[in-house]
Design a protein around this nucleic acid. Structure first.
Lengths: 155, 155
DNA sequence: CTGGTTGCAAACGATTTGCACCCGC
DNA sequence: GCGGGTGCAAATCGTTTGCAACCAG
């Protein structure tokens, strides 16, 4: 569940390229670098983490461009955003990655992603019944994962 | 689905009171006023909307206290938070309100809440299987509701 | 060339915090 | 009276934006 990303980079390039063309925008060096770099990330990442990683990797793109590009990629459907209540947005690659559930452990801060067909079915049912056309969704489940149980701050 | 809230105010008072006591905090005039005022709200509301409504209603509580109290009430389980991607947090009364799905229309900005037992079952299944103890969850579904279809900005 | 793009630094907006005075218990 | 609480204004912090110089097609 880690590698599939690399094989989706070409697809992402195509999608991004189309998206840009459609909006009369250019596939600049920065956007190319960013897309490539993002597809080397594992799991979710924040804008800040990306900035940090890029500096280490000598990929020089400004914060402004980073944010601008991230938005475009989300709009293009290449990335998806999540809010884990950590005060900043998390991104992850959406291509080749089915929508899933985030299990957020409030003890350890750990985030695990799981997929459930049953859940997806239930959602689709619901949407159909409500006359709602789903574009995308986010499911965040906060709780405690078995392996965690940090020192108590509660009770 | 609107009125049940009023009948939960006493319960909320009890919960808040206990929560405060447990944390060596006082049930001050401001916190009382806020709790009461919040239980007059319908659906979800933002901190800003609350501020505005409170001014109209001559409830004088500072923004700082508002935020501080909202956090407490969330922690106490009286309120729940949601992020609809509007750039600020939305709150809603959690007591006597089953966890539900938010259908967020990206055309009209409308947010509808719906409940699905099937979905809840699927979630519980999933959690059991993963050894995860659910405390609370948020499900946001972005899409287009039948009745909307604003002027196109998307082909 | 021309219009989109970048980086910088300043601007933003929601939320948080330091502090001096105030109040619940 | 004591320890927590409040309001104010300033500080935070992630993200956005105005602008002048800079590239892609």
């Amino acid at each position: 569940m880690v590698d599939p990303k690399e094989k989706h980079l070409p697809e992402a390039r195509g999608i991004y390229s189309e998206f840009l063309k459609k909006n009369k925008m250019f596939f600049t060096k920065e956007r190319t670098q960013l897309l490539d770099f993002i597809f080397e990330q594992k799991g979710h990442f924040s804008a800040d983490e990306l900035m940090f990683e890029m500096q280490k990797a000598d990929v020089k793109v400004s914060r402004a461009t980073l944010y601008r590009s991230l938005s475009q990629m989300v709009e293009a459907g290449i990335l998806s955003e999540s809010d884990f209540g950590h005060g900043h947005t998390h991104y992850e690659i959406a291509i080749g990655n089915k929508p899933h559930v985030h299990l957020i452990c409030t003890d350890s801060g750990d985030v695990r992603e799981v997929y459930s067909q049953k859940l997806e079915d239930a959602l689709n049912d619901l949407a159909r019944k409500e006359g709602f056309k789903i574009k995308r969704y986010k499911i965040q489940v906060f709780g405690v994962s078995k392996g965690s149980r940090k020192q108590a701050s509660k009770l």
